[in-house]
Design a protein around this nucleic acid. Structure first.
Lengths: 147, 147
DNA sequence: TTGATTCACTTGCATATTGCAAGTAAACGG
DNA sequence: CCGTTTACTTGCAATATGCAAGTGAATCAA
């Protein structure tokens, strides 16, 4: 969890330097919404990770303490990446991002998961905690919200 | 408001491509929290914008419809950048980011604005709307929250 | 009115980061 | 033991960044 000197301790800057490049947050998304855990699964994402970029970002997120790497006991080739509590705590912010995109991107995929978006709008904190609880158990988002 | 083809319409990706490089969101922050409006003011930010980077990011945010550029009627050299409604709508997400950083950065400046952080924790939506209302009038964050 | 200054950029160039293709090494499966 | 899968690493061309210097319009001071 090393870190090359922060530009500042402004909380917005801290967030930017922790996770907000064009790729890192997609990994977090893949874990939360798609239930992905391995390098190979992330690699298949539609945005198209380059192999080296994915590797550096996984390392970065691990160093930041947002991800935790574990070896799959059933197949030692497959490393698994899980969200730490610090990573899980990104859920409420991601949900606000979803609300924003849903409002301003006419083609947003968020417009197809209206149940979840509605829950977030009504009470982000409440639904976030529910989802985080599920993620701790290794389960992704409630499937019934993704219809 | 051009845009080179999005990688996807995933709402997280849409946010990332709209504002989440290491610089753009700092401009938004400067407007909301520091009441800045001009190129010269942004340039003084502690994170240290390079002049060309600042210029490209201002253009980008304008093209995204997050900022609006106006000429200062009192001094035609000084362009002013204001948040559009789309830009203002980033406030709730920025506030969640502040909560997260406040929790995980021991040196976070957010830990010195406990009143605001407390308000966000209690009811992000409510305090966000209040702040957005002020920003529409050209006023930054309530000064009493920044003690 | 004119010359100096301010302001918002733009340009040039060295350095750093990205993206693609190819390669490697350990673990598994037969 | 041998081919395959998985998770990376490496090389290299293309792109983006960061710093210093320059430009041009608007304002100010005399």
């Amino acid at each position: 969890m090393k870190r090359k000197r922060l530009r500042s301790h402004c909380p917005i800057n801290f967030g930017l330097e922790s996770f907000a490049d064009k790729w890192s947050l997609l990994i977090v998304r893949d874990i939360i919404f798609r239930g992905k855990t391995t390098y190979g699964e992330f690699l298949k994402s539609e945005e198209g990770f380059a192999t080296n970029i994915l590797a550096t970002r996984l390392t970065h997120l691990e160093e930041e303490g947002i991800l935790e790497k574990r070896v799959n006991p059933d197949d030692a080739r497959k490393n698994q990446y899980w969200l730490s509590e610090k990573g899980l705590d990104l859920v409420p912010m991601l949900f606000e991002m979803i609300l924003w995109s849903s409002k301003y991107d006419p083609k947003s995929e968020a417009r197809r998961i209206t149940k979840l978006v509605e829950q977030i709008r009504k009470d982000n904190r409440k639904i976030s905690h529910k989802i985080m609880e599920r993620l701790r158990k290794g389960l992704p988002i409630f499937p019934e919200y993704l219809d």
